[in-house]
Amino acid sequence: MSIKHSLLVMLQQQQRYGFELREEFERSTGATWPLNIGQVYTTLDRLERDGLVKDMGTDEAGHRYYEITDTGCQEARDWFNTPVAPSTPPRNELAIKLALALSTPGVDTGAVIQTQRLATIQTMQGYVRARREADRENKAEDLSWRFVLESLIYSAEAELKWLDHCEAKMSSMARASRSNAPRETTPSQPPTQAKRTNTATLEETR
């Protein structure tokens, strides 16, 4: 998350002081990503050092106001005009967990998927309920907040669809594995202990 650019964008509208910037940021994003006031002041110091904002002094109440510079305005415009770079994929604990479950004997990957599915749908139910409550309170007029909330809903949905995909893939592999298995063992080939795969484990637990 770019605190630097978020602060610049809010300063484009008017001069503001640190606490006010934090309040405005949290109002716009529904307090989904709360900002530490220390982060705000540290970032403002850096922006001033880089010539992107100017310190306009303090008012009678002791609020130190900042104003965006022309360079800062250009930086904010560039931010909007540049897509968010898909840099290194963030570490996804769930993907790592499933990958390890598949390769770990004795772990029921199907159960791991279902446990996650249940938790994610419950989280999603909470998001949808929060959106409906906001609608009732007319918070829906605040489009910024609604966009943030719906981003969480769509992300949760993507995770659930990915879980469905993983489960379907495991089922089809288990079916293929069964259909390719030899029907009977010849006397010259004594039965060896069946290699227990995770897909087989999943099928057995159904």
Partner: peptide
Amino acid sequence: FLKDGRIVDQSSVQGDPNSLLV
């Protein structure tokens, strides 16, 4: 949640939904 003709799980909304948003 249904699977192979059986109910395998049920979820419900729990707690304050706004607590999920922070």
